[in-house]
Amino acid sequence: MGDLWTSSWIILGFMPALLDSMTILEPSTETVVLAKGNAATLGCTYVLDPVEIGNVFIMWYKINPDTTELDTVLLSYASNYMKSYAPPSLKNRLSFTAADPGQGDASILITHLKVTDSGTYQCNVKNNPGVASRRITLIVEERPRHPRCFIKGKNTKGRDVILKCRPRGGTPPLKYKWQKISGPLNPTTPDLNSTPVTGDLLIRNISKAYEGAYQCTVGNKVGTATCVVHLHVCTGEEKIGHIQPSLIKFKDFTEMFGITNCHLTMEHGEIYASANAKKLSELTCNKNENASVVFQRVL
C-alpha cells in the first residue's frame, strides 16, 4: 500500500495542475495576512466529476522557498485515513476542518498562529483521472503592543520638545499617527503626522497653546495600539493650588508632598510657586510653616 501511495503522487507530479473532471472552488492562488495568536483556515473545497472513480487522495505541503530543496509534507488523506507529517512545532495545531476530507472539503486549520508559520501552503486533490491544486501564501504578523508615550526635551516656553511613541513588538513596517485629543486649539500646531516612520513628533517653540493631551496610534496590517502623553508648558510662574477652606494647613501640605522650602504667593485666591527648578520639591522658599493659610494642591 505504501508503494502504491508513493507511486500515485509521483504520477501526480507529472500531471497538469487542473483537469476538467476535478475542480477546486477557491482561486488557484491567495494571500492571507493574519495576526499572531489567531487561527487560520486555508480553504480547499472541491467537486468531482461523476465519471471519476476510486478514492480521493489529498496532500498538503508547505513550499520550500529554496527550490533546490524538497517541500515539507504536512497532512495526507487517503482511503478514509488521515496522517500528519508536520514538525512538532506545528503538529498539534494543524488539522483538517472536515471530519471526512474525502467528501468535498480538504481545508485545513492552523491554530495559535506563530510568525514562523508564515509561508506558502499547497493543497493537492487527486481522484482518477482528475487532479487539482491551489496555493495559499500565509503571512503571520505580530501586532504592536503596549506603546509608551513620553516627552524628550525641557517643557519650558520657547523650547523644542519631541513627543515619542515606542511600542513593544510589532511586525514592521509600523505606521504612526498623532492626534491632539485635549487642550487649546492652535492654528500653528505642527503637522501631527509628519514623522510616520519613527513615531517622533517635533514641536518647536512651545507655548501654552500647545498644552494638552496627545495620542499616538501605532499599527500595522493586523492591529493597532495607542498611548497618550500630556504636554504641560512651564512659564515663569506655575499655579500649584487654590484656596479651599478647612482642608490642609500649609505645614501639613509641605509634609504630605515632601516640600521643605517653598516660596508661595497668593493672588486672587490662587496659590503660585516660582518655577525656577525642575521639580516642585527642589524650589527654594521662605514661607512660614506655621502659616494658617489653608489650601490644597491642584494635580
Rank of each mutant, 00 (worst) to 15 (best):
N155V: 14
S292H: 13
W9Q: 11
E282Y: 06
E30L: 09
L19D: 07
G54M: 03
T120W: 05
L174H: 04
N124G: 08
Y121N: 01
L25F: 06
V73N: 12
E255A: 15
E237S: 09
P65F: 07
P190H: 09
I108F: 04
T235I: 13
T284K: 14
Y77R: 00
M82H: 07
Q215I: 05
P187N: 05
F253R: 08
V293K: 12
G119Q: 05
S84V: 11
T171P: 03
G37I: 03
T188H: 10
S28Q: 14
V33P: 03
L264I: 14
T68N: 15
N276A: 12
L42I: 15
T265E: 09
C234T: 07
D252T: 10
G104V: 04
D200K: 05
P190M: 08
R145E: 06
I240G: 00
H232T: 14
I162D: 02
K164T: 10
E270G: 07
Q122N: 14
S95K: 11
L4K: 06
A273V: 02
L264E: 00
V115I: 12
I63P: 03
Y77D: 01
L70S: 14
A275T: 11
K126Q: 15
A291D: 15
A225M: 07
I108S: 02
C165L: 02
N205R: 01
E270K: 11
L109Y: 03
V218R: 00
I271S: 00
T41Y: 07
R204N: 04
R148M: 05
V47L: 12
P129L: 06
P27M: 08
S292Y: 13
C234W: 06
V47F: 13
D100G: 02
P187Y: 05
H242E: 14
T45E: 03
A39W: 07
V229W: 03
T189S: 03
P27V: 02
R168S: 05
L18Q: 13
L192S: 08
M15G: 06
S7D: 10
C262E: 11
C227S: 09
I58F: 10
W178M: 01
N128T: 12
R145D: 02
S21N: 06
L25W: 10
C285A: 10
W178D: 04
P245Q: 05
V222Y: 05
R145T: 08
P87G: 09
D105R: 07
I139E: 00
G170P: 00
K83R: 14
T116W: 08
I151N: 01
E69V: 12
I11F: 09
S95N: 14
I53H: 10
T67V: 09
N92Q: 15
